[in-house]
Structure formats: structure tokens, C-alpha cells
Design a binder for these strands. Structure first.
Lengths: 190, 190, 190, 190
DNA sequence: GGCTAATCGAGACGGTACGTCCCGTCTTTAG
DNA sequence: CTAAAGACGGGACGTACCGTCTCGATTAGCC
């Protein structure tokens, strides 16, 4: 027996409008300066309805991230067969986001959220496409010159480099994606 | 004549006790939850004295970082001549900090500060030893198999990987430093 | 035919446990700090069940008052034939309630409820025994030296004096009941 | 030495506008429905400025009462030499306030405040003129037929009767003041 | 027996207000 | 002119309740 709960059921309309409002305000104002109060007001919802389902704004942002409401596109690496080229395309896509208006601010907000909230932290890498990338590399281990089991380290290094770019406020220059892949993947795979 | 301003001069005692209090509270409570009010109280100082000299708590933290009051040790890579070994030692040192009690929390607080404040962001990499590492690699370019001009990318990738570790809440395992260096520097340099 | 409604009938168990819970919480926490939510929880009842039958907590308290669940005893004046003595006994009884632990708080809660809710207000005097006292005095008018038709004023003055005692936080001293009757009834009736 | 305190001094402007706003909102909305938040907004003041100086809205109302900002007129009994006539005039004045638009509501709000807050409770009687009346009666003890030391009881009874009128929602009729004085002062003084 | 209607418990919902924390600014007194 | 102290207007926090509503379950008269 599924042990039915009693009482009114959770309102999907409220949930949706809260997440939408969160995503919008996150993009507009950044993670700091994002307040539960303003989310509630923008969503046309009582504050308690937010606190009933999410412990803090960090988890709200985490759920938005999971639903793909924060990043403008699906940042998955393409698969043309040539890993190196795919990596470069992928990084260039990410860099393009970073260079878009307020793109860096959005990324830094994401980092701030990841620093404060466990859920966001655990999902940050995957949201940038790291997860599918890892399994992709793992599958190709033998075929490429990459040492086996290094997938995690490579992805960590590449995503980490992107994060450092956002944190260090260094402007991105053309060719950066290629140089980065070159540095991490090494000469051997060229 | 050096054009001395009239009136009382800035109190060094106040400055020091403010920075000390900031560093202590930063370590205890993290970047969020760090408040100017509590710093002033802990330092035995009026709030105005803080606002007179620093624009926000971010800059306070930046100055602490610059003075080496936030990280427990000097995180400079050693120089034994063997770059690969030095990198591993350096990363192991950083990982050791991460594994110390609240070490990860401290690192995440640093990242949060870097995400919010430009100064902290610009200095984060250097504070972890990235700056001296870069010049070291640049100097050795020809000697090693590293492609010329890749120093920045390599350091970015390594430091970035560390940052991702802290953000993703992945526990560190023995050998991780070596694997990371292996992945980034590639087989060719072994 | 009494035009019976269809559907389930009002649950007497719910009604009783609501009133009991109300009376208990009223005594424990006072009229302010008394919440429908806590009554419902204490009574093991849904909030709607309360709102279905009572418009507000004021009416709940009014019904408790009417059922004698709020005041510890029946505060009716005795009837020995000697009005003056009876009045003194009655006031002494009320004063005894006031002096009991939290007795004054209870009385003030009752006054607060009376100030907010019409029903409670109209019943307050009667609950303290004023109603039966009035008819008693009216019946004795000629026999005593009391001017005819003054019953209402006398009762109002006596009960009012008790209320003022509770409001003014003046401690009660022995003999107060007698002095009060003396002041209101005057020397002529002694 | 007067042990001078440091730091900015309390703003009289803020204090005044808070009390004015309190008095206005008290008259408009009553003691329940009076909220610190609305007072702060109406006074153009931060909530903390209220909480810094008053523990609760009860004390705010108490201070307004003390400054005579709540009751429309000075409700002191006149002194023509004839106590009975003066008492009647005084009660008629109070009854006139009760009969004015929202006058009864104001009185009940005052009673509610008195029931909740000690300060208001202690001052309620005095604010209605009870204090000056008591000393007046005491001074005349021998001259009148009033038993010595009965001043407090008489005032308590009279003011209490007024309070009961407000609580019981009984409409006031012409001659009520006289009947009340008659009942309390007795035939002897007629 | 099935239908309809009312009740009950539970509890989600949009709101208001609470009392607290902290912001960044301003004011006061002391050195 | 700096400094400690601290009051100020304001924004947001997370919590408590308000009164309404929506559920599923139960109960009782009616066809």
C-alpha cells in the first residue's frame, strides 16, 4: 500500500513560478543580492511556501541548475569522433557564454552558490557538461593516448580552468580554448 | 616637503586588530556570515574606522589574503629541479590544507570571496602559489617538453582542479596529486 | 418535520475537545498568545473544524465562559438574607480567585477578551455573578435602604472595582472586600 | 562627574514622530490591529529605532497615554466645592467621550492595552482623572459624610463602572452619571 | 445499494507581522 | 583629523499564525 498522505497536495503552479522567479532574479542580480523575499514577491507566493520546500536559497538555485534554468544552453561537448576538436568546441561554447553580457557575472554567481551550498557544488561540474564528457573519455581510453582512468582529472582540470578564468577576471582571447586543450591533453595526442 | 596632512594619523593598532579579527572570523564563520559589525566588535573598533579605509568586507579579506593571514602556510612550490616532482609536492601540500579540519570550508570561503570581490579574485591564484609557479615554468620551457607559452594554461588547470575539488566536495585520496599532474603534464614529460 | 439536513452530523467529540483545549490554553497562555492553530493542534482537530463553527477565537472564549470552563468556581453571591454580608462574601471569593496563582492573569485575559469581543464583553459581568446579584437586589429594594432601581449601578460599580483591581495591579489586602462594600453601599445600610 | 556617554544622542524627532504615529494609529485601528511595522512606516522610522527604546507596543501606548496623546481632553473632575455635582460633571464628560464616534472603541482599546501591559494598567485610572479625584476626596473627608479612607474605593468603583459600561456594550442614557453617583455616594450625602 | 451532501483530519496556500541581524551613514565626545 | 561609541533609516531574515482552500476518508439521509 502506498501509504497515501492526507491533506492538500503540493501546488505545481507555485513550485514552477518560484523556480522561474529564482532563475530570473539570479540572472539579473546575482547569487548575493538574491533574496528569498524578492523571489516570493516576484513569484506571487508567500515566503512560507518557499521555506516549506527548500531549506535556503542555495537549494533553490541548485534545483534551477538541475532543471537547466540557469545556463543559457545545453553545454554538452559534441561528439564528432575527434576528442580534441570536440573539447575545443565545447570550451569555446563555454567561453562564448562567459563573454556574453553578464555571462561572467552569471558564472561567478554560480560559483558563489557552489561555494555556499553542497548541492550546487556537487552539480556545478556536471552542469557545464563535465559528466557526459567524463564517460565519453573513459570509453575512448585505449583508442586515445590518454592514460587510463585520467578522465576525472582531465575534466576537473578543464572545468577548473574555466572557473579560474571567471574568478581571475582575465579576459578571454581567441585561441584560448585551443591552448588550454593543448596544455592539458599534451603533445602526445596532437 | 611631503605635504603632511593635518590632524591625527591613521592608527596602525586599529588596522592590525581589524585585519586580525577579520582573519579569525573568516576562518571561524566563513565569508558569508562574516559581518562588518562583528569584525568591528571583535577588533574593539568603531564601524566607521573600517569604512574609512576599506570599501567592503571583500577588500578586507583581500588585504588579509595579501598579507598571508588566511592560508595556514606559504603555498609555494618547491624547486628541486625536477618540475614534475615539485608540482606533486605542491599539490600535496594544498591537499593537506584541504584535508585539515575546516580546510575545505576555508577554501570554499575563499572562493566565495573571490566570486564576489574583484581583488580577491585576482589574487586567489597567486595566493595558492600560482604566480611563482608560472614564472618557474616559463623559465624552464625549453628544458622540459612543455610547449612554450603554456605556463598560464597549466597553472590555471592545476589550480582550477584544486578549486573544483573544494567545490565538488569530493574527498581527496592518496595519489590524487600525482594523477592530476600526470593528466595535465601528460606522459611525455614523465 | 424538522427539515433534517443530509450528510454527516456535527461531531460532539470535536466540539468538546476544542472547548477543553481552548480553556486550557487560555489559562496557560492568556488571551493574546492564544492561537487557533495551537487550539486545533491541542484538540487534535483540523483548523477548518474550528472555523466552521466559530467566527473567531473571541467567540470560542465566549462559549467557554458561558460553559463555566474558564473561571475556577461558580462565583454566585450567597443568600443569607443579609445583603451586605453576602456581598462581602462574594467579593472575597472573587478576590481569592484573583490571589490564586495566575488568577490575576486569568482575569486580565478575560478583560482583554471582553475588550475585543462583543459576546465576551456582554457576558463578563454575568460570569462574575453580577446577573443573579442584580435580580437579588431588585427584589429587596424596599426592604433595604437602597434607592430603587440602583441595582444595575451598584453591581456595575462593584464588578468594575474588581476589574480595576486586576488592571491596576494593586495587591489585594484583607478587608478590601468589606471596605469596598462599605464605600458603595454607604453607612446608611450598615 | 556626570559620566558622559559617547556616541550619537537619541533623536527627539524620531521619538516624537513615533509617538504621534502610535497615537494616530491607535485611534484609527485600535490596540489589536496596531502593529509596530505600521507605526514605523507611518513615522518614517526603522523598526529597530522603536525596539531600541520600547520593549513592545504596550509600552509605546503607555507613553502616549502618559503624554495625554490618546484621550481627547483632560478628564479631570472640576472643583466647584460641591463634590457630588463635580463627580456627575466628570462622569458626564467621560460618557460624552464614550458616546463620541469610536469613543467606545478607543476606551476598549485602552482597556485591552491595560490588560496586556502593566504600565498602561497602572496609569489607566489616573488618566481618566482618578488620581486627582482621590486626593480631592481625601482632603474633604470630614466635611462630607464619606467615611474616612474610602476615597480609593469610591474612585475605583466609579472608574470601574465606566470601564464595565465600555466592556458590556451597554448604551449610555441620560441621567446615568447621576444615577451612578447616587448609587455609590449613597443617600446620606444627597 | 448507489448518490449526494455534509463533516472530519490534515495540511498547502497567499499573506501580515513579528523581533533580530546587519547594512552603510551620521552624530557625538575625546584625544 | 582620527577614533570609539552608537543612533539612525532601511532591507532581509526565518518563524508564527491568519483565514481560505483542497485533499481523501467517513457518515448519514434520500432515491
Amino acid at each position: 500500500m502506498p501509504e497515501r498522505r492526507r491533506g492538500a497536495v503540493r501546488s505545481e503552479a507555485a513550485r514552477t513560478s518560484i523556480l522561474t522567479a529564482t532563475a530570473r532574479l539570479f540572472a539579473e542580480r546575482g547569487y548575493d543580492h538574491l533574496s528569498i523575499e524578492s523571489i516570493a514577491a516576484a513569484a506571487g507566493v508567500g515566503k512560507q511556501t518557499i521555506y516549506r520546500w527548500w531549506p535556503s536559497k542555495g537549494f533553490l538555485v541548485a534545483e534551477c541548475l538541475l532543471e537547466g534554468m540557469l545556463l543559457p544552453e545545453r553545454l554538452e561537448p559534441p561528439d564528432t569522433g575527434d576528442l580534441r576538436t570536440d573539447l575545443i568546441s565545447w570550451l569555446e561554447e563555454i567561453f562564448r557564454v562567459l563573454e556574453s553580457p553578464n555571462g561572467e557575472g552569471l558564472m561567478r554567481s554560480l560559483i558563489a552558490a557552489a561555494a555556499e551550498n553542497d548541492e550546487v557544488g556537487k552539480r556545478l561540474g556536471a552542469s557545464l557538461g563535465g559528466l557526459s564528457l567524463m564517460s565519453r573519455i573513459n570509453a575512448q581510453d585505449e583508442a586515445s593516448g590518454i592514460s587510463p582512468g585520467a578522465a576525472r582529472e582531465i575534466v576537473e582540470a578543464l572545468v577548473g580552468a574555466v572557473v579560474m578564468r571567471a574568478l581571475s577576471r582575465t579576459p578571454i582571447e581567441s585561441g584560448d580554448a585551443e591552448r588550454l586543450v593543448q596544455a592539458v591533453l599534451g603533445v602526445a595526442v596532437s
